[in-house]
Write a protein that binds this DNA or RNA. Structure first.
Lengths: 133, 133
DNA sequence: CCTTGACCTCAAGCTGGCTTGAATTGGCAG
DNA sequence: CTGCCAATTCAAGCCAGCTTGAGGTCAAGG
């Protein structure tokens, strides 16, 4: 198995060396050994970092990402929990879509006050979050 | 205009009083005055808080939310910037959808190693984030 | 053999978004 | 008028997720 120096991993993954060390401390990734002092990583770490970066971008904490995918990159949870995660993601996607529509609306609707525009209020109220106004 | 005590705003919006004071410090919301020491808010603050909460849920910082909607709840940006925001949201939605599909896949695919499953790799590579593996 | 420079460790610091705690104020019920 | 209790201010603390800095090591090139 070809080994990569931490610097090479950093460059190819776009993740800073300090972050890689941090991830290793947390147990999210594992180095394959050392050359002298220097950490060497197997190439599979690049795929794992993709997962981590993707999960982070999706709003999950490192702990949560670690929970979804073990440090080997394999899923770590029973099927139903993975589906539950996916359901949560769908909910988040709905929220985002809502916000996106709200933004498009305020960009295009010429109404003087959006807070009073029924369409806008409807968009807001569609959110699970909305206060009891 | 009916005024609400900060406690009532907290209860109806689900936002803690300390957070409301923090938002006021940041200029995201404005209190309509005081009764003695106590902040009083106009009812429109509830709608503004919906926007703030929605924006936060969508992964935006308070500064960014403040930039999208002014402290009056009105959009603060020119149309094209609002559309740019909406485009960014769409990109984020695609990332989330990707992750969701990846999770569903690993939940259902019986392959021994997902890192080697072509479908899974394809899902990952579809992400803008993926390293040059 | 010696220098170079990328890596190492460990502790401390930083940002965002609040929460907590101590000490104080003041509207309102009795 | 008294006392309660929720609200006030201000500083400090907390968590996540890193980054930065000081001081040290070592593999490879000249």
């Amino acid at each position: 198995m070809k080994l990569l120096d931490i610097g090479e991993v950093a460059e190819r993954s776009g993740v800073a060396p300090s972050a890689l060390r941090y991830y290793e401390d947390l147990g999210l990734i594992t180095s394959a050994g050392r050359k002298g002092l220097r950490r060497q990583f197997g190439v599979e770490v690049l795929l794992q970092l993709s997962l981590i970066t993707l999960g982070k971008a999706a709003g999950f904490s490192l702990q949560e990402v670690a929970g979804m995918f073990g440090k080997d990159g394999q899923p770590d949870l029973p099927r139903d929990q993975l589906h539950a995660r996916a359901d949560a993601l769908e909910a988040q996607i709905r929220e985002l879509t809502l916000l996106k529509d709200a933004l498009r609306h305020v960009a295009d609707c010429p109404a003087p006050s959006h807070l009073e525009c029924p369409k806008f209020q409807k968009l807001l109220r569609a959110g699970s979050i909305t206060a009891e106004v």
